[in-house]
């Protein structure tokens, strides 16, 4: 089994503290992204991507030419006015980039659609409260079953492509939230199992080396099986038709009846439809006795 990737802030000393890992390095300013990518390579680690966590709208984020080819995850609170973002969006099509926007309002939901329609890969952040599930459902329909080819919009495109009626599907890795695949380090090198837990100061190990110790491993194992609690406690998620593609991700975050269930049921239906539409034509078989 491969080692989980490391998500850590851009800090040269921190990067020097471990070797041979695949690293997603976080910066809060796009201007530092190229330096961060360079320093990851110099530290003896492999760059997985640079995560730009900006407080600025997309219209105010500039990506330098040095970043071409470097995998980028750009997280911004909004797009800003299209007229001011359009020149940048045009250039971004040539970058190896995915834009993350929160679905916290109609403007951002429209922005995700605009980005996707213009060939920029994007990712919707939802389940953060005050979600307009109907609008998110429309967005999902556009992403999965839209008339015209457009750039992928996650997690919808991922779910549609990987949906398997006979299995569960976890798409947390799209948000770097999957302890089997990503461990989050804070500036001091302490290890958390998710971004939210890092922000909340909930760590499972004091440093990366401690991750092989029994308590940390137990925490990871417990986390990866956390979904079973929904069935043990007979929560509303355990009876949800969208369970297979949600795994109760929002059970602790959203109140019952918030609308996520209807959305994920639609998501499953759209994924089935997508599979039907994209299935290779079956070979004609001549009947034989």
């Amino acid at each position: 089994m491969s080692l989980p990737r490391i998500v850590c802030p851009y800090s040269p000393p921190l990067l020097q503290s471990f070797r041979g890992r695949s690293v997603a390095v976080r910066v809060d300013d796009a201007a530092r992204a190229a330096h961060a990518a360079y320093d990851v390579a110099q530290s003896g680690n492999e760059l997985f991507c640079v995560i730009v966590e900006s407080r600025l709208p997309l219209q105010d984020i500039s990506l330098s030419e040095e970043l071409r080819g470097i995998p980028l995850a750009v997280m911004a609170p909004s797009m800003g006015r299209f007229r001011d973002a359009s020149e940048k969006i045009k250039a971004w099509r040539n970058f190896n980039l995915r834009v993350y926007l929160p679905c916290d309002g109609a403007a951002n939901i429209t922005a995700l659609k605009i980005l996707s329609s213009l060939g920029v890969q994007s990712c919707a952040l939802f389940g953060i409260g005050h979600d307009d599930w109907e609008a998110i459902s429309d967005l999902m329909t556009y992403a999965v079953l839209g008339l015209f080819p457009h750039a992928s919009m996650e997690p919808f495109s991922f779910i549609a492509k990987n949906y398997d009626a006979g299995d569960y599907l976890d798409w947390g890795a799209l948000y770097f939230d999957d302890p089997k695949k990503f461990l989050h380090l804070d500036g001091e090198g302490r290890v958390a199992l998710s971004r939210a837990e890092r922000e909340a100061g909930q760590f499972v190990a004091g440093c990366l080396a401690e991750c092989d110790a029994a308590p940390a491993l137990a925490a990871v194992r417990e986390r990866t099986r956390a979904w079973t609690a929904n069935f043990l406690n007979n929560t509303v998620c355990s009876r949800c038709p969208g369970w297979k593609v949600c795994l109760g991700k929002f059970s602790a975050l959203l109140p019952e009846g918030s609308g996520c269930s209807d959305f994920f049921a639609s998501m499953v239906e759209a994924a089935r439809q997508y599979k039907r539409l994209t299935a290779p034509p079956s070979e004609m078989q001549v009947w034989r006795p």
């Binding site: 429209t110 659609k113 605009i114 329609s117 008339l147 015209f148 457009h150």
Partner: peptide, 14 residues
């Protein structure tokens, strides 16, 4: 609206 405009652009291009 933006949503309708995007739909129309898709429709015309397809």
């Amino acid at each position: 609206s933006w949503d309708n405009l995007i739909y129309i652009a898709d429709f015309l291009q397809s």
